[in-house]
């Protein structure tokens, strides 16, 4: 090969590498800058904080990832988290303003079942509409997002609450979620990190070791071919959305204790972060592609960058613009990788 052509090929390899990994390069640069300006960013407390935040956001990302593998999306995720958080907070308090007749908190397992049922029901509605009527997931989940928000506002106005913040949850529930799992020095790792690891393991088994998981990837790759191969496409789609709804419900159940309160704004824009994390981690909108490890990496990297920007006290209004641009870059890279794959 002539020298000129060698140089051209090397340039192409380098430019491909830089473009395909632009997101990771930006995050790496931000991490280095923050570490220099605020050395405590790389301290034990900060790293544990990032792990905790990653664990809190992982279940919703795992739920959304399934919908993306189906070549769809779910923008109702955040509001489902909000609804389940609000229901949890209202039922696990000894002085419920929403249910004044409730003189003490309901049993924790019962409340968990209730919120899981709510999440599964909303997931079923989404999945059924997509599978049965071939409606675009964006349209279906946009409508359920708005409906769910309306339900949150109505629920928060029940009894004598009048839309006020829900707090004052019972100690056993708070201990179950935010109690100490173990300590690293003096820094506490809460119990919900363990729950996130358990969800991770369960989803990995479902995605990789079950017929349902294989069907999910088959439907996402090519619905027609999957149908011809004997896959029940409708049940697979409904199942994936139900599974996603259950994961959102877990996120809401954990969030109510983690934050210590629940409002109508709980869960706002959670789906944007979850979707961005999935795309950064290689779960492609093309469908039929994605790994659990990619979801973890995506969530972790997003938490790292935003915790870093937090450390620098970057104007919080700018963070929305940065998040939007991150989604744009992640989707552009996703499309580029698909087009240039042999």
């Amino acid at each position: 090969m002539s020298e000129k052509k060698k140089i051209k090929l090397n340039k192409k390899i380098i430019s491909d590498f830089l473009l395909n990994n632009a997101m990771f390069i930006i995050i790496g640069v931000v991490i280095v800058y923050v570490a220099i300006k605020r050395p405590t960013f790389l301290g034990t407390a900060s790293i544990i904080n990032i792990i905790n935040l990653t664990a809190a956001k992982l279940p919703i990302a795992l739920g959304v990832a399934g919908c993306i593998v189906l070549a769809g999306t779910d923008i109702s995720a955040g509001r489902v988290v909000g609804l389940t958080a609000v229901v949890t907070a209202s039922l696990l308090t000894n002085v419920s303003k929403i249910w004044p007749s409730l003189t003490q908190a309901l049993p924790i397992p019962l409340v968990l079942l209730i919120v899981l049922a709510i999440g599964a029901l909303i997931g079923f509605v989404n999945g059924f509409a997509v599978a049965e009527f071939s409606l675009h997931p964006y349209i279906v989940t946009l409508s359920t997002q708005l409906i769910t928000y309306g339900l949150i506002l109505i629920y928060m106005g029940l009894g004598t609450n009048n839309g006020m913040t829900l707090s004052g949850m019972i100690d056993p529930y708070k201990a179950l979620i935010t109690g100490t799992l173990f300590k690293v020095g003096s820094v506490v790792v809460p119990r919900y990190v363990l729950y996130a690891v358990i969800f991770l393991a369960i989803m990995w088994v479902i995605w990789n070791k079950t017929v349902f998981g294989k069907n999910m990837f088959a439907v996402g790759s090519n619905k027609t071919a999957a149908e011809v191969s004997g896959v029940n496409v409708k049940m697979t789609i409904i199942g994936v959305f139900i599974m996603a709804g259950i994961m959102y419900a877990f996120t809401g159940f954990i969030d109510a204790a983690r934050v210590g309160s629940a409002t109508a704004a709980t869960g706002l824009n959670y789906e944007a972060d979850a979707i961005s994390a999935c795309v950064i981690g290689g779960v492609s909108f093309v469908g039929g592609t994605g790994k659990i490890s990619g979801v973890i990496i995506g969530v972790l990297l997003l938490q790292v960058i935003f915790t870093g920007l937090n450390f620098l006290s970057v104007n919080p209004n700018m963070l929305y613009i940065i998040k939007g641009l991150i989604i744009l870059v992640a989707c552009a890279i996703d499309m580029r990788k698909y087009l240039t794959k042999k």
Partner: peptide, 10 residues
Amino acid sequence: SSFKQFRGLY
């Protein structure tokens, strides 16, 4: 790559 068709959401 110029002829490759997207699928899914794209």
